[in-house]
């Protein structure tokens, strides 16, 4: 099964304390940022700090670096430094088909994959093409803030302005069997708002959500983990399936409802995720 990517925490590349402690908040992935959260005069310092940290420390999380945009004067230096680092993915901001092509070329000979940041109106319209440009491109993140600037609309807590973009990128990602991560919730002191926003994203099909503060991780992880109820129900389905198989029955019912293949597949997936998250042990299935 693919990696679990419930949460991805942005860490400003020029903040030593956060870089040092990035791994302690149980975020499934860390995104060391060389782009928006780093001031122009700090770009080289951030690049150096991230390089040193990744070469020195061992991290448990999936490691991603967001580099400077293709058309910026820092792109070349960023990519040169990143190519040699033990990272899993590069997050390409303001992604386009051309951008992915350039990055793909640069990454030849490395094991580094690409994640695209969809944050423009054109990017949303072209998302299927962008994701299909390269085998290395494993998934996407939606960037709501920049997108709203492009759409000339206000970013709201309800996120209604992002509805179309969210649905479109999820559909494209799922059509290509790639992952999709929702835009961050920017009010770091509104836990309830974060929970609602994450629940809505999960309901649309997102695999996880970006975080801009470590305090957001717990809520995000909880929302994107299978619930206790889901786990129990899935275990019952799999148990019933095993009995039905033994008895040679093709079809069976639970609580009066027919259980067919898609339901079994979903139950299998939930239990697989739950096991990976240690929410259920191997014995629980017996």
């Amino acid at each position: 099964m693919n990696r679990i990517r419930r949460s991805m925490l942005f860490i400003p590349g020029n903040n030593p304390g956060m870089v040092q402690n990035g791994d302690v908040f149980d975020s499934d992935a860390l995104i060391f940022d060389l782009e928006d959260s780093v001031a122009l005069e700090e770009k080289d310092a951030a690049r150096e700090l991230v390089k040193q940290a990744l070469e020195t420390f061992e991290f448990n999380a999936e490691l991603i670096v967001r580099l400077s945009p293709l058309d910026s004067p820092f792109f070349e230096a960023d990519i040169e430094a990143l190519k040699k680092l033990p990272i899993n993915m590069i997050l390409l901001p303001k992604a386009s088909v051309e951008g992915v092509k350039v990055l793909e070329k640069q990454l030849r000979g490395t094991n580094i994959n690409i994640m695209v940041l969809i944050e423009s109106a054109l990017g949303v319209e072209k998302v299927f093409d962008i994701l299909s440009t390269s085998e290395r491109c494993l998934g996407l993140m939606l960037g709501g803030e920049d997108l709203c600037v492009d759409l000339n609309c206000k970013r709201t807590k309800s996120g209604q302005e992002l509805l179309y973009a969210r649905m479109r990128v999820v559909n494209a990602a799922k059509a290509l069997n790639k992952f999709c991560i929702d835009t961050p919730f920017t009010d770091v002191n509104d836990e309830e708002g974060l929970q609602k926003d994450a629940e809505f994203a999960k309901a649309l099909g997102f695999d996880g959500k970006a975080a801009i503060n470590p305090r957001q991780i717990i809520t995000i992880n909880k929302v994107f983990s299978p619930s206790e109820h889901d786990i129990k129900h899935s275990l019952r389905i799999l148990e019933a399936r095993d009995i039905a198989t033994k008895e040679g029955k093709g079809v069976f019912a639970i609580d009066g409802k027919m259980v067919d293949l898609p339901i079994i597949k979903r139950a299998e997936y939930i239990i697989e995720v739950a096991k990976k998250l240690k929410l259920v042990s191997d014995n629980d299935e017996d």
């Binding site: 402690n21 302690v24 908040f25 503060n213 470590p214 305090r215 717990i218």
Partner: peptide
């Protein structure tokens, strides 16, 4: 504390 490390330890 609002410090995320302090909060994690507390949890």
């Amino acid at each position: 504390t609002r410090n995320p490390i302090g909060l994690k330890i507390a949890r």
